[in-house]
Design a binder for these strands. Structure first.
Lengths: 345, 345
DNA sequence: CTACTTTGTGCAAACGTTTGCTCATATTTT
DNA sequence: AAAATATGAGCAAACGTTTGCACAAAGTAG
């Protein structure tokens, strides 16, 4: 039988409540009893039962993280681990654990959220998503459960979210190409379901317009998934389009790698013949040949900030007790253009 | 106030126990009451409180995953997400959630394990580790808490673990080079603290011996971390060693990428001048130029199998009640050599 | 028709904490 | 010196389930 708070109480000659208050460092406990109890806890090697504690205190000190599309390869993207690392680090600092659920469908996602929220397992959830019109969000709002979204949401007004400024990322990247003299710049990896890519695309278009360059639909290549195969995308591009780009902006470094491979195999050298850039600054970007110009999106900070926001809301919930006074915030994590060889020396 | 089992009971005119049994699909409940209760549960939108359930049933349906070295960049390795995906998928199938903790020190690791195990938060834990002599393992054994290790452990006899056969990986990779006529094969990324690399190194040595090639210490490059920078490793290699390898086996694809970049910059072409191979078959390996020969370690399966093993132990624990009858198993997940351009056509 | 088994349900005791009250004692204020 | 306040600790009621036991009603065997 595991040693419980009662065993400690008995051996110390105090009541369970006193032991509990010692653990919680309650101010109204004399340092004499505090030390006595703590000594006994050490002796018996006592560790509080978190489940019981959660039940009584109505707080599990666990935050849930919902990762979409685990069945897809997107989870494999270096972006996620970094995010998770940011989340984990800050959560740990605040004494929270993280429960991750990798869902494969919207159905599953909703079930998981309900289980996490209604089941009392978590005190709040972080949603990694960038899909348009997420039904889970509606559910969470309905039950007014603390949550924050990483990635822009459509119902911006009523949710906490943190994201990069993807419009600016697209804009700056495009401007970088324009400044180097490019005028036929392809945009690789637009995916209407993923707002990230749409935002970046809008930034791309705006930059072109601001510099008096017409947007050419021929230069835009859509893809179903963010991590889609850049190689094949380029293959179909060159097969079906008449225009020859001098620069390619890929929505993701992985896409860029695939694209460069295709270019190399077809006698086009990067950056001499075509300049290429990606987004996300994956670790390999620096070691690719040529090293890849990319955008550091600071995934760690995205995750870290998300937790801070969430925890603020969780606590606000408690103290205020009036859910309506909640303030919603949108936080932009700065991104940084990293210029490397793939867009010229 | 949230709707509880009592609310359902009252409205259905039955006792809470009956409702509980309906949820658990207890055989001794008439289908009449079963349907009546279920209908009311739908009506009131009831969802059981998992915390209370855990407390009463002494099982949280959560398994913990301890990831070492989050502070380091190792977490960023594509290997981890795949593993996590495998773990998550199988766990979900069995109705388990996964609580991940990313610890930054051995101290923290032990604390977390104690919290997970003694605190009743998890029913079992999976340790991702490949370090020599892990103190957490001793702790877990001491309290006879269900756990499985991914990555070989030293105390093999008393733990459940799942891993690749890293000796064979090293052996086969080396043999692949030998068959292509290489005799001066460098080994990149030996790291004495990480058993994976040591095992692969032993396989490498054995293969050389079996083919009558002497092991040359000059050709072995150690590195502190698995994800250490292959570029700089090569730089110091060529600066300090007199021998010229015709082939390089890197303990990791990322290391190989870095090495290839260095070689390219110094006028050595891969695979013409030097053949290079890595391990792990990261997504980019196929799209690198040249495409990288690697070893697919099936991280997904590693994770999946680990969960199966763990769950088997968790249940055995319950039914048998006699911890000593536990059987320990070692599972080898097959790895596969993927030959690509970097070791010749 | 009795005795025994099966079926369906309820009672109440866990599970291990937290926390609002209460209350005695000690300390400070008037 | 009395009154007011601060300090320290205990009682007992939550928190929302599960589950062993009891027991009535119904079914089955002899």
């Amino acid at each position: 039988m595991r040693v419980t708070i009662k065993d400690i109480a008995k051996k110390a000659g105090v009541s369970p409540s006193t032991v509990s208050r010692v653990i919680a460092n309650h101010p109204r406990i004399s340092s004499a009893t505090k030390h006595k109890v703590m000594k006994i806890m050490k002796e018996l090697d006592y560790h509080p039962n978190m489940i019981a504690r959660s039940l009584a205190s109505k707080s599990s000190k666990i935050i849930g993280v919902i990762i979409p599309g685990t069945a897809e390869r997107s989870f494999e993207h270096p972006f996620f681990p970094e995010l998770l690392r940011g989340i984990g680090t800050v959560a740990y600092q605040h004494g929270y654990n993280i429960l991750i659920s990798s869902v494969t469908s919207l159905e599953e996602e909703k079930d998981t959220i309900i289980q996490f929220a209604r089941g009392g397992i978590t005190d709040g959830v972080i949603l990694l998503t960038s899909r348009v019109r997420d039904p889970s969000v509606a559910e969470l709002i309905k039950m007014s459960f603390p949550f924050v979204i990483i990635g822009r949401s459509e119902q911006e007004s009523r949710v906490n979210w943190v994201d990069n400024d993807n419009f600016s990322i697209g804009y700056e990247l495009t401007e970088h190409f324009i400044k180097r003299g490019h005028r036929r710049i392809a945009f690789l990896g637009l995916s209407p379901d993923f707002l990230v890519t749409v935002d970046r695309f809008n930034g791309y278009k705006q930059a072109l317009r601001d510099h008096g360059i017409p947007v050419d639909e021929e230069l835009v290549v859509e893809s179903q998934f963010v991590t889609d195969d850049g190689y094949h995308l380029m293959k179909t591009f060159y097969r079906h389009r008449s225009v020859q780009p001098t620069g390619i902006i890929a929505c993701d470094d992985l896409l860029a790698f695939g694209a460069i491979k295709y270019l190399n195999e077809h006698g086009l050298e990067v950056p001499r013949d075509v300049a290429v850039a990606g987004v996300n600054n994956v670790p390999q970007a620096a070691y690719f040949s040529p090293s890849l110009t990319s955008v550091e999106i600071n995934a760690f900070s995205l995750g870290a900030k998300a937790v801070e926001l969430l925890l603020a809301e969780v606590n606000e919930e408690y103290t205020a007790g009036v859910p309506h006074t909640r303030s919603y915030s949108r936080t932009i994590i700065p991104a940084e253009l990293i210029v490397r060889d793939s867009t010229g020396r």
